[in-house]
């Protein structure tokens, strides 16, 4: 049995319900035969990759769906040393997909300068039908590329545009530099509103004759609890800890929990953001419970989170910054309680 997320994923551009406007525009683009470099941006889960796959299918026909996954080692000759790295690519006869950000560090520059250039340089083989005279390189998460890597991408985009088109996706377009953006057709992919999500869920449920949630219980109750992801629950627990007691001892306990989350590969930015949202929610409850005119502490707390997340990007070890945020929050929160409630 296929996962429903896969089963109901639209495969062709005319099957799109959510991003119908975008899909229609993409169809027009392909029809004119002039496909520019494209950059899809939008929050995670909005459907960027689904659009990319459908676009490929539109250009090359079903052949683009026969994919193979390869992990192959690359050796790059640098003037001073030899760099060896492994990169996973997903490719069909017509396209190659890779996430250059995975390489990490400052090495991603060489991925762009050598590997991507290499892939872009080789003209596509003449594969009978469906050949458009160019191939497509799909680059995922270009926002994770360093500035140097993006600078190098610029030149590659112009030089090899005759035989290769880049299709890129990213979540945070602020991190993609202007010169790269201005060379692409930028397509914004918005997240669906909750009504649309609901509609789709109903549609799926109808088709599946409502076997929904037989895991837990059936039929669903009005107040059916949806279990949050365990890491989210864990962060909520941390938020509760911090609100309950503000002391060095507590900070030490929280540190252990933070370490555990980081060790389980929860990205530190996400951790900090979720933690802030949980704290804001709890503060909100507290303010509502005691409706006296008090200064709203939430702006201050947001400022703290924004400041420490910014530093986290520049620094080396995330734990310092997250812990600093927690400590600062404890101090502010205690002060606020003293002034607000005496």
């Amino acid at each position: 049995m296929a996962l429903w997320a896969d089963k109901y994923q639209p495969k062709a551009l005319d099957k799109f319900v959510l991003h119908k406007g975008i899909a229609d525009n993409l169809k027009k683009l392909v029809a004119t035969g002039d496909c520019p470099h494209t950059l899809f941006y939008g929050p995670p889960g909005a459907g960027k990759r689904t659009l990319v796959m459908a676009l490929l299918r539109e250009i090359y026909g079903p052949g683009a769906e026969k994919i193979r996954v390869e992990t192959r080692p690359w050796t790059i000759e640098l003037p001073t040393r030899k760099l060896e790295l492994e990169l996973t690519t997903v490719s069909s006869n017509y396209h190659v997909e890779l996430s250059p950000g995975d390489v990490g560090g400052s090495n991603d520059r060489y991925v762009v300068q050598e590997i991507i250039k290499d892939l872009a340089k080789n003209r596509p083989l003449d594969v009978a039908t469906g050949n458009k005279g160019f191939k497509v390189l799909v680059l995922n998460e270009v926002d994770r590329l360093s500035r140097e890597a993006q600078q190098s991408l610029r030149r590659t985009m112009e030089k090899y545009s005759a035989g290769c088109r880049l299709v890129m996706t990213c979540a945070n377009i602020s991190k993609v530099m202007d010169p790269v953006r201005s060379r692409c057709l930028c397509v914004r992919v918005a997240a669906p509103s909750s009504e649309v999500v609901q509609e789709q869920l109903y549609a799926v449920a109808r088709k599946e004759a409502l076997q929904v949630c037989r895991v837990q219980q059936c039929p669903l109750r009005e107040d059916q609890a949806v279990a949050p992801a365990d890491w989210e629950a864990y962060i909520a627990e941390i938020a509760g800890d911090i609100m309950a007691e503000q002391s060095a001892k507590k900070l030490y306990q929280v540190r252990g929990k933070l370490y555990e989350l980081l060790a389980n590969c929860i990205p530190p930015e996400l951790l900090l953001r979720t933690l802030l949202l949980e704290l804001l929610k709890k503060l909100d409850d507290e303010i509502k419970a005691r409706p006296r005119a008090t200064p709203d502490p939430r702006a201050d707390i947001t400022e703290l989170a924004a400041r420490y997340e910014h530093r986290l990007q520049e620094g080396q070890k995330p734990i310092f910054h997250i812990e600093a945020f927690v400590a600062q929050f404890m101090s502010r929160y205690k002060n606020w309680q003293l002034t607000a409630f005496g």
């Binding site: 945070n172 900090l272 802030l276 702006a299 947001t302 924004a306 997340e309 910014h310 990007q313 520049e314």
Partner: peptide, 24 residues
């Protein structure tokens, strides 16, 4: 905020911060 974004900070946190600042 623009500087922080340029350095690669999180968009949501930065915008929320700006919103709070403007409000203040």
């Amino acid at each position: 905020c623009d500087k922080a974004l340029q350095d690669g900070a999180d968009e949501f946190l930065q915008l929320l911060h700006v919103g709070a600042q403007v409000q203040r």
